[in-house]
Design a protein around this nucleic acid. Structure first.
Lengths: 239, 239
DNA sequence: CGCGGTGTTGAGACCTGTCAAGACGTGTGG
DNA sequence: CCACACGTCTTGACAGGTCTCAACACCGCG
């Protein structure tokens, strides 16, 4: 059940059998939610952590004029609110973009897990640090890259992150977002996303067909997005 | 010496005398650097944490075309590379914007500190989570706010963060950045920063005089930037 | 079959960038 | 004390990227 999650951790450090078992045992229940459900509301007091088992979620922020910005995408294997363990509430919403399955870990269980395995405490701290690194990369994208390059970068990030948890197939992956949601990731309008997507396709960098992305030439796409895997910290070493 | 740092921590939780003493003792030395020095290079292996005692620093990322983006500002009381403790290297540079004084805490000391005081481990974890929250807020700013509003938001953030560590005076603060550096925070050009600054001034929202910012009407500036202090987590409660 | 959400396209407006020149100001050397 | 140099700030004209608005096409679903 937590296979994807373990893959994500093991991409960065060794996890032994005891740790693996303890993580599994800290789960109290599994829930299902439909698409477009806000599972965590901005400001809400938290008492549990949610591990995404299946589907896509997003961190979203609402603007006063009705616009939205997505600050990070979340895939299977990701804890969507690990930072809530110390923050106690979040500064943003967490919303399902597709139907999802979620494992619930009560904060109490999580605390015990981290006390018993200080090594896991460091690992999970690192996981939140990787989220921060992703945020920085988006900041750079939004601040300094044009639409085409920014979009290329995002498609690369998604590819690399899905690859870690075995969710890519061949040179592509399932991509369930609407152009509107993609626009909310990229700080663009859906109209411009549409045009940029066509431009990427015209250049042979990407194909989007029936909710599936195909990347004919990954190095070329990475070049277009100035993408460097560095910030995902894909090195297995003691943390 | 670590007064500002303690203020920052105590804005979020109680810190007792033992903890305070232990933090102070973990410092191995104090260094000085001039302005425009890159104290941490992207990718460099890390073995110590740097606590900013005085001056301003920034997380910067270089683009292939020579542009730069700043992803966060750092003030006195901030650990600039706390995430390096688990990440082992950073995905960005850390550069002094002014002359700075830095306290050095070797990773080894830091590890011992956190083992001895699990409460501090949670606090420092939270501090990196607050950095991530700041990154998210910048993402939203860059993605969805126009130049004027984005700049207003940034001046509010700086005011609130400096206030925590007692670095504001009256309704303003020392502001050592050039317009070029400000542009690198905001994803703009220095030319447009110049014009936006004039517009803010014309609207009576901000004055910039001789490296000092004055905010005549903070609520108005917050309104212009849609600023909400939420994301700084200024609540003293057990973590 | 009709409906609502999503995707597509065009024309024009707006925000921000680019380029270039000049003003200001501060520190240095004579 | 002055002259100069260099970085920073300021301004104008124009270009370009992205947005807005609106209409229409497409498609899955009840």
């Amino acid at each position: 059940m937590i296979d994807a999650h373990l893959k994500k951790l093991r991409a960065r450090d060794r996890i032994n059998a005891d740790e693996e078992a303890a993580i599994g045992l800290s789960i109290s229940e599994v829930r299902k939610v439909r698409a477009d459900v806000t599972v965590i509301h901005h400001g809400q007091e938290l008492s549990e952590c949610l591990l995404l088992l299946d589907g896509w979620m997003a961190r979203t922020e609402d603007m006063s004029n009705g616009q939205q910005q997505i600050s990070e995408l979340q895939f299977c294997g990701d804890f969507v609110d690990l930072h809530g363990l110390t923050l106690k509430r979040l500064d943003h919403n967490v919303t399902s973009l597709t139907p999802c399955r979620i494992a619930v870990v009560p904060h109490e269980n999580f605390r015990k897990l981290l006390e018993q395995f200080p090594h896991l405490a460091r690992i999970y701290w690192m996981m939140t640090n990787i989220d921060a690194a992703i945020h920085r990369e988006w900041t750079v994208s939004l601040g300094r890259r044009q639409a085409l390059s920014r979009m290329a970068h995002l498609f690369c990030e998604i590819f690399e992150r899905l690859k870690i948890v075995g969710q890519t197939s061949g040179n592509g992956y399932e991509f369930p977002l609407t152009q509107q949601e993609l626009a909310e990731c990229l700080g663009l309008t859906s109209v411009h996303v549409n045009r940029t997507l066509q431009e990427l396709r015209k250049r042979g960098l990407i194909e989007v067909h029936k909710k599936r992305v195909t990347i004919p030439d990954l190095p070329a796409l990475k070049a277009a997005g100035e993408f460097d895997t560095d910030y995902l910290y894909l090195e297995r070493r003691p943390r």
